[in-house]
Amino acid sequence: MVNADQNPLIRVRGLVNRFGSLTVHENLDLDLFPGEILGVVGGSGTGKSVLLRSIVGLHRFNGGTVEVFGEQLDRLSPSRRSEIERRFGVLFQRGALFTSLTVQENVALPLIEHTGLPRHDAEHLARLKLALTGLPPEAALKFPAELSGGMVKRAALARALALDPEILFLDEPTAGLDPIGAAAFDRLIMTLRDALGLSVFLVTHDLDTLYTTCDRVAVLARRRVLVADRLAVVEATDDDWIREYFHGPRGRAAYQANQLPQET
């Protein structure tokens, strides 16, 4: 899947982010290549979400460059920027569904606004996206407040996929899901990646997600990306934090759980 020869879809160089006197990122470099699932991990407060927000243009960074599809979002005209933004989808940590719209309207909104589809067609496509993310048809007419946590995540994923994006940003997609739901969500992301040819930028704390889905893992620590490579290489990196993260009790369990199905 990973094709490192190609130009990266996202190229972050020398990123600097400061909040007052607190420096979160200093000279941070990171790439996302076409077709890969890149997991971004790091302790609390290492700026994983800030990195995601810097890339998608929600946060104005203090220095460095961020190129998405070869363009610097912060230097584009609003209309050109909107064109680029249509080519990526973002799943926010708590779904961020519009509470005053039904699930189906949530997904149909970008379709109606950006492609000018008639409402009926847009809602038909919205129900298809909802079915793709594994939601039952009845859920389409419900309001976000009536859904369970897992269903909210799926509906939000359907909205992120509405315009068939090329890059999908996921902020803690499995946080707050039960293990069965989380495992199903992991499989869903892999299936969609294979079927839709997505590249996925995945911020997570979930070791199981890392082991089952990610092609490459980037570790954020000490204000930069310590290492970004295949999991085996990352695990072997000589660093205290990485050792504790991947070889602690939870890391070992996740590793073993992922090994079992491959051995048998």
């Binding site: 038909h124 129900r127 298809l128 079915a131 793709l132 039952p136 048809p137 009845e138 389409a140 007419l141 299936t191 969609l192 294979d194 079927a195 839709l196 040819g197």
Partner: peptide, 18 residues
């Protein structure tokens, strides 16, 4: 893969009786 996935998702009728 894309066609199969979409076909599978559409196996359940998408229309809703309102």
């Amino acid at each position: 893969a894309l066609l199969q996935t979409v076909a599978k998702a559409m196996a359940v009728p998408l229309r809703l009786e309102q």
